[in-house]
């Protein structure tokens, strides 16, 4: 395989006819995908569509039925994929676990001097430098629970980056965090991307996350479409991805995707009429809708 050394313009991650899944049941079929070096890619799709499976297959932890995946020209197989950092969904982290920020970040470097239990001076300095760079310097000896949502996300970002990866994979990095944190995280990722790190993330937030990314892959059991959201966020493509009636509104370079189902539409309308909200009465909908919440039947 030495002959296929990656040319500069060659894609960093390549899926060639990949079918993969768990327990012999494919979650994704016939995926052909190329993620360029330096790319910033979002994967969108409904729940259970295979977003996370697509991400996990890049690091070789999803059993493959057919096809092959390469990262930097190397075929992904069993064992770790070198040069890749993984950031899990924050909701999956056990926050009661007794671990300091430093202990968590150093997990990302476990394979260096793997038989040595304690951290070297070099390890400690690397952690300190990285935490400074990510804006959470001085928190190394805190317990992971004693941090804000944004700081917690940065800790796991630091664990992914301690091995100097060229590719960062993030599973729903903006789920479960507040608006400001979400923007902070996206800006931080954009900075890292500007430093040359390729970034691939999954998200279920079309308007607030995916629409701002330069490249988006729509997934539902297979790749439905990929491209610049300006081009591929259309009712037809999103409808096929989500199996729902979605409307796409474009105004002043802003893309807004709205679910035509009533409850989702109401949320979307609130976004559109943001600022006018206070000029209106609270009771927009029919009265009985408001009683629903407090009119729970006595048990």
């Amino acid at each position: 395989m030495g002959a296929t050394q990656s040319a500069p313009d060659r894609a960093l991650v390549e899926f060639e006819g990949v079918t993969c899944g768990y327990d012999g049941e494919p979650v994704l079929r016939d995926v052909d995908l190329a993620i360029p070096r330096g790319g910033f890619v979002g994967i969108v799709g409904p729940s259970g569509a295979g977003k996370t499976t697509l991400l996990r297959s890049i690091v070789g932890v999803v059993p493959r039925v057919e096809g092959r995946i390469t990262v930097g020209g190397r075929i992904v197989g069993r064992g770790a994929t070198p040069g890749v950092g993984w950031v899990p969904q924050l909701e999956t982290v056990d926050w009661q676990f007794p671990a300091t920020v430093r202990e968590v970040v150093l997990m990302g470097r476990w394979a260096e001097r793997r038989w040595r239990a304690w951290a070297s001076k070099d390890d400690r300095q690397r952690v300190d430098r990285l935490l400074d760079r990510l804006g959470i310097g001085g928190l190394a000896d805190r317990h992971i629970r004693q941090l804000s949502g944004g700081q917690q996300q940065r800790v796991f970002l630091a664990r992914a980056m301690i091995g100097d990866p060229s590719l960062l994979l993030l599973d729903e990095p903006t789920s479960g965090v507040d608006l400001k944190t979400r923007d902070d995280i996206l800006h931080l990722l954009a900075e890292l991307n500007a430093d040359g790190i390729t970034i691939v993330l999954t998200t279920h937030e079309l308007n607030t996350v995916a629409a701002h990314l330069p490249w988006v892959v729509c997934v539902n059991g297979r790749v439905i479409a990929e491209g610049d959201p300006d081009q591929i966020f259309t009712s037809a493509i999103l409808g096929r991805t989500y199996g729902a009636d979605l409307r796409v509104v474009r105004q002043d370079g802003i893309i807004l995707v709205a679910d035509a189902a009533p409850h989702r539409l109401r949320d979307a309308l609130r976004h559109r009429h943001d600022g006018f909200e206070h000029a209106h009465h609270e009771h927009v909908g029919p009265d009985h809708e408001h009683r629903e919440s407090d009119g729970a039947p006595p048990s």
């Binding site: 690091v59 770790a80 993984w86 899990p88 990302g108």
Partner: peptide, 13 residues
């Protein structure tokens, strides 16, 4: 430590 903390992510690393 890695496996005890997160058995899902440890194999990825």
């Amino acid at each position: 430590l890695f496996m005890t903390f997160d058995v899902e992510v440890a194999p990825i690393y």
